[in-house]
């Protein structure tokens, strides 16, 4: 019964669908509050800053800096068996929200807190894409 295990693919739900739709089109879509003009993440129904209910989807810059990271050595899901050790990182986006993701295009030992990064988008199957980040070059 064992075959090559696949990574878990997120299932967009009603509230998160625009985030995943944006990723498929190569844009980092985040929620922005019409009332207090602040950004929020993770995706939710209502603004965590002012509790306003009018959250609009806007394309974010996709730029940020590496706040921190860790290198995962455990295989908690068989889909990641070929990936360990892999990084899980927190990005401080220019919009003022912090996002957990992976940094790509860089060896684990080259990761540096504070480095500038930008979003790239990866097709993870089932018609779903997710943002990842790579170092900004030049």
């Amino acid at each position: 019964m064992s075959q090559t295990a696949t990574k878990p693919v997120p299932v967009p739900d009603e509230v998160s669908a625009p985030f995943f739709d944006g990723a498929r089109e190569g844009r980092l879509m985040l929620q922005h509050c019409a009332a207090c003009e602040k950004w929020s993440f993770p995706v939710r129904e209502r603004c965590p800053h002012c509790m306003g209910a009018k959250l609009a989807w806007r394309a974010a810059s996709g730029r940020g800096t590496l706040y921190t990271f860790a290198i995962m050595h455990q295989v908690m899901n068989p889909g990641f068996a070929a990936d360990v050790p892999y990084n899980v990182s927190q990005i401080d986006l220019d919009e003022g929200v912090r996002m957990v993701c992976n940094i790509v295009g860089l060896a684990n030992d080259a990761l540096r807190i504070g480095m500038a990064v930008e979003a790239v988008f990866e097709d993870v199957g089932d018609g779903v894409s997710i943002p990842k980040f790579r170092p900004v070059t030049g």
């Binding site: 990574k7 878990p8 899901n77 990641f80 993701c101 992976n102």
Partner: peptide, 15 residues
């Protein structure tokens, strides 16, 4: 795997 929980899993962010 729904929504944001699924996104965490897609990054291998478990536990």
């Amino acid at each position: 795997l729904g929504g944001m929980t699924g996104l965490k899993a897609a990054y291998g962010d478990f536990g």
